[in-house]
Amino acid sequence: MTRVAVTLNVMRNAFRAGLADYRAIFTWKSWLAGWYLRVIAQVAFFALIGERLEDDEKTMYLLVGNSIMIAAVVGVFSLNMTTSERGAGTLPLLVASPSSPVVVFSARGAYLAVDGALSALAALAVAGPMFGVSLPWPDVLAVVPLTGLVAVASYCFGTFLAGLVFRFRSVNNLVVVTTHVSLMAACGVNVPLSFYPEPLEWLSRLLPLTNGLLGIRGVFGGADPTTILGDAALEAAVAVAWMTVALATFNRLAARGRRDGSLEFAS
């Protein structure tokens, strides 16, 4: 096999392993009752704030922002993956295998990106009509790839954070939840970027979700396709950037772990 074929094969198998894990947690029934119910409730919670403000435009703004937020929420769950890998004692085995752990991880967690995008779109599709927000057809189709990009970028960001907190397993959950709410606060989900002071505005452009969400709002607002494409390109660039940093972090971790023995077989 060629190198590419080998890598693809590794990724395919890792993806399957990830999916199997996921299936062990969720059946489609428990997904609907357990997860999707929360998704709808979360979106409705924020959209209702718009209703309380008696501002239809704001309702629409909150509804779209918080629906797409779901893609980021799921993507960031990639933070948990390395930790669970560590808990299961499989991490050193991965490092010792001829495949790069990052390749394995990213494929193993790819279901998160898929699940995130689907959850976000399903939220939009159901919560939209609930609050009388019309989704312009067929423009709305452009939202699908953009949401996928948001999910992937958030996934990459989560992987980066996983490397960052790798040595402090106990704070993992803390970081996941704080990241969720921070993204909610900083990425133009609930108020436009112009509401923030300028430096913060730039900072939030570096985070996942921000650019992709702008593009999606552009689709709903009938913006110029080149503007939307520009936002999409930025979201993709953010994804690549965070994944690159994640890669570097993990290589350093593996190197350090081999030196000081911190890659325990069981912890």
Binding site: L53, N173, V177, V181, N190, V191, P192
Partner: peptide
């Protein structure tokens, strides 16, 4: 954990009502 997120949620909610 909620003591970390409570101030963040406060900021989110305040931003929404302030902006409106």
């Amino acid at each position: 954990m909620p003591l970390l997120t409570a101030p963040l949620f406060a900021l989110v909610f305040l931003a929404i009502v302030r902006q409106s």
